[in-house]
Design a protein around this nucleic acid. Structure first.
Length: 617
RNA sequence: GGCGCGUUCGUCUAGCGGUUAGGACACCGCCCUCUCAAGGCGGAGAUCACGGGUUCGAAUCCCGUACGCGCUACCA
């Protein structure tokens, strides 16, 4: 492992590819690029604005904030990953710490502020979206991961895997009231349970962090500075009451609601004076006057056009300094170089607003793909009333992760219209944005159950046995030690149930009679199969005959019982049902002879006897 | 109110100008069978929301209408 310490920094000057005004340039040199073949042009620039810094160079369009050790504060834009440009050592997240910033080096905020004053770079990097896909799933930890979010995560993951891109997990925890660490933990757990792995994000690290919005305050500050500098953001001092009044007026008026841009007309001096005077204010985007209609080329919906006139100067930063959602996500997406935004339909109307911010930041606008919502069976928004909605609830109700993944993947996406069983492997090999459907979908729990059954049936026996154990354990019927001790016996359980289970929760009711020492006979079953004199005779005959068996296996038991039925003149079916109820407690059970074989001769005969006693009177 | 999105069997979907509108779940029937399942075979189920166009021809393209949903916050 490569280690790194602050003293390893030999040059106090941070260099990067330079594209600022020549007057600011102190020197220029071509150096070998540490990250790829060839050279890059480095420049040294006097940043007069930042006297506490040494000579600094930045390029605003070459991803100025990327790819350096967390503690290095370096700047570079050259290829994905590999070396830290400030120390030229391989990046190793764990070896760096960000706790003691070096005052000689520009902070991230500094570099970006400088960038804002520089003209656009001639060599704007044109990302090739096909070659370098970066997608993100950005849940808000205000609750458990629900199936809508899970589906969004699945699509993002599948798309990243299919394209060989990067899947990023980011936590949108800007709502301090409702965001909890436990929710975050649960979301990570749910994603992992589904088999989704992320390349960057919590517990995975990555060069574009931090991945929690609450830790990204500086990024929002920097972005706002840039927007202030290029005139795309302005302070607004209007009070809530004033705004409310304006909204009312607009709503009853010509039908173009939104902020009336009063404060946009303030002079710069005026605004500065009021800010300096401590007057509370928010920051708004200045939607360009000459901006034409905004078209969103959505991968799912095609081109949708939003009239620019409908865009008002919405708030970017609240009066308490925190960013609004539409600002924060864009800053994050821009900083993290997200190429494709795959998310819920409810954000489609926000997209033109966000595009405006991307443009103001001079960042490439990602491709969008908006997914339709998932509804409950009644066509209403999914809620507790519809039963399980969180991933963990499905887990607890005996749904297999691969089944939930499969079901959710097909709820809004199709491979070919025929295929219904899609493994994670085929998903990651075949997923495409083009085959996402536009229609909202209603969640069909019955189909999920069917699919779960398919996965249970198709599972290798050893694996099913293994997966059944936790359910038996939590019911107090078996233990791990038990399982290890009698592996063959547990394995033999599988064929009894694998064709009969829809959910893993059914394991215990289906197999309980094989574990419990005592069983209770289901009254309705007794009524149906045990009340006749014929049935009691059958039980007695069966108990006796089985006692003489020297081979205790399914075939022998079957032969024996058929012989008993024959000699007693009782219909085999009648005898079997009587025995079934006596031994399993119910008219519905796994196959009788196999069940008896696994139960053991002793217990089986004991139950036949006690059932006679129970029904005698 | 304004803007945007959506509408193919009960449900999920295929379809991208010419199909008997295909598949899956659920449902019904038959077969198999020691119960329940699973499996096999078959069936019913969609005037492609509605109304206009364009076209020789439209579920597919265009325009309206209806209904549903989203956004229109110093929510996310």
């Amino acid at each position: 492992m490569n280690t790194y310490s602050r003293s390893d920094i030999t040059a106090p000057i941070v260099a990067a590819r330079f594209c600022g005004p020549p007057s600011a340039m102190l020197g220029q040199e071509k150096v070998p690029c540490p990250n790829r073949q060839g050279t890059q042009t480095l420049a040294r620039v006097r940043a007069a604005l930042f006297p506490h810094l040494p000579d600094v160079a930045v390029c605003r369009n070459v991803a100025p904030l990327r790819r350096f050790h967390a503690g290095c504060r370096g700047v570079v834009g050259c290829g994905p990953s590999a070396l830290c440009s400030a120390c030229a050592l391989p990046r190793d997240e764990n070896a760096c710490d960000d706790s003691t910033p070096d005052s000689r080096l520009p902070t991230r905020a500094d570099t970006a502020i400088i960038g804002a004053f520089l003209p656009p770079c001639e060599e704007t990097r044109v990302p090739d979206p096909a070659a370098d896909v970066r997608v993100r799933f950005a849940p808000s930890p205000t609750g458990a991961l629900h199936i809508g979010g899970a589906r969004t995560a699945i699509y993002n993951w599948a798309f990243a895997r299919k394209t060989g891109g990067t899947f990023i997990l980011r936590i949108d925890d800007t709502d301090p009231e409702r965001s909890t660490a436990e929710n975050t933990a649960q979301i990570l757990r749910s994603l992992r349970w589904l088999g989704l792995d992320w390349d960057e994000g919590p517990e995975a690290g990555g060069a574009f962090g931090p991945y929690f919005q609450t830790q990204r305050a500086h990024a929002y500050r920097v972005a706002l500075e840039r927007m202030k500098a290029n005139g795309s953001a302005y302070p607004c001092f209007c009070t809530a009451e004033e705004l409310e009044r304006k909204r009312e007026a607009a709503r009853s008026g010509d039908g173009t609601p939104g902020y009336d841009r009063t404060c946009r007309r303030l002079s710069a001096d005026d605004a500065r004076a009021r800010i300096d005077g401590g007057e509370p204010h928010v920051w708004r985007v200045a939607v360009p006057e000459d901006r034409g209609d905004i078209v969103v080329d959505d991968a799912v919906r095609g081109e949708t056009v939003f009239p620019a006139s409908a865009m008002d100067d919405f708030v970017l930063v609240r009066s308490d300094g925190t960013p609004t959602y539409n600002f924060a996500t864009v800053v994050d997406d821009a900083d993290m170089e997200i190429t494709h935004v795959i998310r819920g339909d409810d954000h489609l109307s926000n997209t033109p607003r966000q595009i405006l911010v991307f443009e103001a930041l001079a960042s490439p606008v990602p491709r969008f793909a908006h997914l339709s919502m998932i509804w409950g069976a009644d066509g209403k928004k999914l809620s507790k009333r519809h039963g399980a909605t969180s991933v963990e609830a499905f887990r607890d109700e005996g749904i297999l992760p691969e089944a939930l993944l499969n079901y959710l993947a097909l709820l809004g996406w199709s491979l070919d219209g025929q295929t219904t069983i899609v493994s994670a492997e085929t998903l990651r090999a075949t997923f495409s944005l083009e085959r996402i459907s536009k229609n909202p979908a209603i969640f069909d729990a019955e189909k999920l159950d069917w699919m779960n059954g398919v996965y249970i049936r198709d599972m290798p026996p050893e694996q099913l046995a293994e997966r059944m154990l936790p359910w038996l354990e939590s019911a107090g019927l078996a233990s791990r030690a038990d399982f290890e001790l009698r592996r063959a016996w547990f394995l033999a359980l599988v064929p009894l149930v694998n064709e009969r289970l829809k959910r893993m929760t059914e394991v215990v009711p289906a197999l309980g009679f094989l574990f419990a020492s005592e069983i209770t006979l289901d009254p309705a079953s007794v009524e149906k199969a045990l009340t006749t004199a014929e049935a009691r005779t059958a039980l007695r005959g069966s108990a006796e005959a089985l006692g003489t068996l020297d081979r205790w296996d399914a075939a022998s038991i079957e032969a024996c019982l058929r012989a008993v039925a024959d000699s007693l003149g009782v219909k085999p079916k009648v005898l079997f049902q009587a025995v079934r109820v006596a031994v399993t407690g119910s008219t519905v059970s796994p196959p009788l002879f196999e069940s008896l074989a696994l139960l053991g001769s002793e217990t089986a005969r004991a139950r036949l006897v006690s059932a006679q006693a129970a029904t005698a009177g």
